[in-house]
Write a protein that binds this DNA or RNA. Structure first.
Lengths: 349, 349
DNA sequence: CTGAAAGCGCTAACAG
DNA sequence: CTGTTAGCGCTTTCAG
């Protein structure tokens, strides 16, 4: 019952382990006859070479680690799918490291990122990809930053859609500010002038960028950004509902809301509906991220795609080249895309 | 720049590698003084032991492989979250093996499952979890079955929500037939008599079970199952739309439809809306799986939860015990739960 | 409490 | 074309 090794094969074939290794890896010519015999034995015993031994020697595992917050957040599956697709074609495999747990405090999350970084190093991954978590903090602590910078000296590290100020880590990201501009301009072009912003967190840099893009576009068009219409309430559907209620309770409603992500837009859509408003006739809504549900909802959500699938593919390609010690540009930026669907229309009045 | 090893630490501490190993693993008493010195050195060099070397020796990696179809399918994130949660508490890490690619043919998928099985074996995982794919086939080929049965002799294998006829592989699964019965009975209890079934595939065993549960419940209530109202069209939102159109084109509509999953229900909801029907007033819809979108939609979907999160947690616990050579029951079944929301109501007439 | 030494399974020179 | 051999970095007896 003991697993068969290269030695067992070698002995039974009457050759040395070197020869078996050679046929395994096709690393040197082997006489046809012996090669066939060895292949038969491999088949017979269903021999699988031990990748640990191999990697120990070769100092490469064909494995990369992905550290990210939460598989349950609909933003990630597309990104992962892109990574997977490209990883497959290049022969890499993944350690998935999900840092958010059911009862997650934020601190736990960063703590867990640290643990995973360390575990991935022990497991000798060829590279590490990080997305979300500390790299989305507007002002990450020194320790959080240093830790990543230090690991990046030992193994290629790539940040997706985030950054660590004061470091020159490789990164690939969607231009969130541009995305916000696109969304806001779309609303303005439709004729909206009273536009609110909803969602996000002030302590997250991507939220900040979305707000900035919104603000900048409003100002460029000579429109006022009302502070009471800038509702930084979080990223969940519930927070979208909340935001709507706040808006609603203030008497005068905007004619359009730019939501910091699709879940918020969905929450807002439901709340607006409940309050007797029609979307888009009474209220235009644009989301952000283009999660799959955006096209399932009624009406379908106008939103901004960060093109996560492509970002995923490019990210893996970049990391692969970093692993191969190629020179790659430190920053790769991906242009987001406005997806106009049914939740936006000209204002009524 | 070469990574520091246990030898480097040992030399600088003036002790043998054995001692360093002992403090690393707390595997034997070490004099306080030397222990401290070693710990300092570890800190100083940020030494990380090489898990490959360790695993090579110990014959365990703390790693388990998950083979599943498609991260992009909203059914899986919850399952994975449950697996993750439990894995974390037990110190396991995951190899994620996604078998569906963008342009996937079914055959490619099974082929890829085979590849992954083999790779996971080489990487010396402590156990393998399979979900979806070949284990959902109503009639899997002999080769597909044998391959899994053979690997199960070498490493613990657990099947989630699936099976391989003719084997006694360990499995954990939700009782899909019961789930279908719950859904159908709910509709009947509401007063519906003209009920259709939509979605699924005849070649997938879980579809078949859902259909059977539906059929059985209809018959038990003395209701007719009309063949032309049993639309086995697939699992996508588009197929739900299609199914509705077929139904609609036939003149007489059912008052309720049991959809084989939530995406179908969503597609049908959209199509019904477009045709001027109100859900649930004109048409009641019940979905299956309780994916996150189910509670985002308007109206919120009545559906059946397979409790994937809990299934995930239990699955990992089971596998853990299998790895520890404990006796576990071959089959664990989880009771699904009917989630009544807004998409079902008594029929109008 | 500590060190020496024997591997875990495989690859890669280096000789032949 | 093939065999010998020296490790990869770590754990674990077995002696002290």
């Amino acid at each position: 019952m003991k697993p068969v090794t290269i030695y067992d094969i070698a002995k039974e074939a009457g050759v040395s382990v070197a020869t078996v290794s050679r046929v395994l890896n096709n690393s040197a010519p082997v006489k046809h006859e012996t090669r066939d015999k060895i292949k038969d034995l491999i088949q017979k015993y269903q021999f699988q070479p031990n990748a640990l031994a191999r990697s120990l020697l070769k100092k490469e595992t064909g494995t990369i680690g992905i550290i990210f917050p939460d598989i349950t957040n609909p933003f990630f599956p597309m990104l992962l799918a892109g990574l997977e697709e490209e990883a497959r074609s290049k022969g890499y495999h993944f350690f998935l490291c999900d840092t958010v747990s059911t009862m997650g405090q934020m601190e736990d999350q960063y703590e867990r990122e640290s643990q995973y970084i360390s575990i991935l190093m022990e497991k000798q991954v060829d590279g590490i990809i990080m997305v979300g978590g500390r790299i989305n903090l507007a002002r990450p602590s020194k320790e959080l930053t240093t830790e990543v910078a230090e690991t990046a000296k030992r193994v290629p590290v790539l940040l997706i859609n985030g950054q660590l100020p004061g470091t020159d880590l490789n990164r690939i990201y969607a231009d969130e500010r541009l995305g916000a501009e696109l969304a806001t301009q779309h609303l303005i072009d439709l004729g909206h002038r009273r536009i609110a912003f909803a969602g996000g967190y002030r302590f997250m840099s991507n939220s900040v960028q979305r707000i900035q893009g919104f603000r900048k576009t409003m100002e460029r068009n000579g429109l006022a950004v009302r502070p009471e219409w800038t509702l930084v309430t979080g990223y969940s559907a519930d927070s979208g509902k909340e935001a709507f209620e706040t808006l609603h309770s203030m008497g005068e409603l905007p004619t359009a809301v730019f939501c910091a992500n699709d879940q918020i837009a969905i929450g807002m859509l439901k709340a607006a509906r409940k309050a007797g408003l029609k979307v888009p006739e009474d209220l235009s809504l644009v989301g952000f991220d283009d999660i799959p549900y955006a096209s399932y909802s009624i009406p379908e959500l106008t939103t901004v795609s960060l093109r996560s699938y492509e970002v995923g593919r490019s990210a893996l390609d970049l990391l692969h080249r970093m692993i191969g010690k190629e020179k790659v540009s430190k920053r790769t930026v991906v242009k987001p895309e406005l997806i106009v669907r049914e939740s936006t229309a000209p204002p009524r009045c």
